[in-house]
Nucleic acid binder design. Structure first.
Length: 408
RNA sequence: GGGAGGAUAGCGAAGUGGUCAAACGCGGCAGACUGUAAAUCUGUUCCUUCGGGUUCUAUGGUUCAAAUCCAUAUCCUCCCA
């Protein structure tokens, strides 16, 4: 199977700028880049899904450059709905450092920063050297700009595409980079860069975009409400990641395996058969979790996550000793126990519930259990009897949120 | 600079003097069913010492009573210059 066929089979190609690219991809030897802006100090699982392409292409003999936008992060890529809030330069710098380190650790390729070649361009040069190549009509026709004409868009964000085009031009001229890869929402920005290169240098550059990874409801992969799934294991534990992956909906799991792992066609087809025969065994889910967590955090972390999950979600849970809990479940969220405290106060103080009202609601709704025993008594007071071996407490909220209580 | 319109809970959006802690939809959370899945159904979704308390951009005002009326400010959108 050629590279292009492989990418196609995995569902990773939404669009390419020219059919010539197919042959170039299959031949190898291209320098290409994929970028992101430092809007947070850690990447999340969404970044992983798109940046993974760098490893795929590298395997076939291409040269990846990872761009973290220290300059573009200060401006903000227009979102379809609303203007981004400005973040401070210090914040961007802080975020940049975090992302750079992560990108190097996880993907292992060179990281470049567009701040380096953008910071010294003055306004006049910017307008003459780049602005002169952009027709406003062309810019207005871009989807992202169009969708913002009603809700409003500032000149800063409007100009974003010029900055990104300039990046591509710079990398083309200075690093021999002829291809930019990104998620499909970047299509407009990529074509701007291709146009700029064509107009200024009379040279052909290429673009390729991947479809956004979404679930059956069109929701972005990795977007759990509230907290993102960070790649930094101190922000999102391997266990939390494992739980997320193992709980993905069945109908999407094969698609995810293709897009997010390096498993071969044969291996995935085999998993598909197993999955269809016995979906409740979640073999495909487990394979996905294994591949991703091992790649991100390493084998040990993965095994730990499996172990914790097995302890908590099988019959084993009733046989756990306090030592088992302390030694094995260290990725499970913790809280402090005060003997003599009312159960409602405990839930609020430990931030398991956000208010007493909610805590009472949970209790009366059968949602709370201690050491696997349902608690419904609002007046319950925590005593030594509630601790396993007098040391720890295993508290569960809902069906799958575990917390471990310890005494100081 | 002139004119018009707007700002309501996480989001979208009703409400234009009391019956408003504020309809409805989405999202969230929980329960049932299951397989730690999806779909579906049910409940819930400001805080509370369960008496009540604090909310509808902000500040002042009118009124027995304000999300609702008035004034000023801030922000946003559109149109004209």
């Amino acid at each position: 199977m050629t590279l292009y066929e492989d990418l196609q089979w995995r569902g990773l190609i939404q669009d390419i700028s020219s059919p010539e690219l197919i042959e170039k991809l299959n031949k190898g030897g291209l320098t290409f880049y994929i970028g992101t802006d430092p809007t947070a100090d850690s990447m999340h699982i969404g970044h992983y899904s798109s940046f993974l392409i760098s490893k795929r292409l590298a395997k076939y003999g291409h040269h990846p450059l990872l761009l973290v936008g220290g300059a573009t992060g200060l401006i903000g890529d227009p979102k379809p709905d609303a203007e981004r809030p400005m973040i401070t330069k210090e914040e961007v710098e802080h975020n940049f450092k975090g992302l750079k380190k992560q990108a190097e650790e996880i993907f292992g390729f060179e990281v470049v920063n567009n701040w380096d070649w953008t910071k010294d361009i003055n306004v006049i040069d910017f307008l003459r050297d780049y602005g002169k190549y952009f027709n406003v009509g062309y810019m207005l026709a871009k989807d992202k700009v169009k969708s913002r004409m009603e809700s409003g868009i500032t000149f800063a964000e409007f100009s974003y595409m010029i900055l990104q085009a300039l990046d591509f031009l710079y990398l083309y001229e200075n690093r021999g980079c002829t291809l930019q890869v990104a998620g499909s929402d970047q299509w407009g920005n990529i074509t701007s860069g291709i146009e700029l290169i064509r107009k200024k240098l009379d040279k052909e550059a290429y673009g390729m975009v991947m479809p956004l990874v979404t679930d059956s409801n069109g929701k972005k992969f990795g977007k759990t409400e509230g907290n993102a799934l960070w790649l930094d294991k101190n922000k999102t534990s391997s266990y939390a990641l494992y739980q997320y992956l193992i709980n993905l909906e069945d109908s999407m799991i094969i698609k995810y395996l293709k897009m997010l792992t390096f498993l071969s066609k044969e291996e995935i087809e085999d998993l598909e058969k197993k999955h269809n025969a016995h979906p409740e065994l979640r073999e495909a889910h487990k394979a996905l979790a294994r591949e991703i967590i091992t790649d991100l955090h390493g084998k040990e972390e993965y095994e730990k996550a499996v172990k914790i999950s097995e302890c908590l979600f099988t019959e084993k849970i009733n046989e756990l000793s306090s030592d088992d809990i302390i030694n094995n479940l260290n990725d499970v969220p913790k809280f402090n126990i005060n003997i003599g405290e009312n159960i409602v106060d405990l839930l609020v103080n430990s931030q398991i519930c956000s208010s007493k009202r909610e805590a009472r609601e949970m209790l009366s709704g059968n949602a709370i259990s201690i050491n696997n025993q349902k608690i419904t008594d609002l007046e319950k007071v925590i005593s030594k009897e509630d601790l396993i071996d007098g040391k720890v407490m295993l508290l569960k909220k809902g069906k799958k949120n575990y917390y471990i209580g310890t005494i100081d």
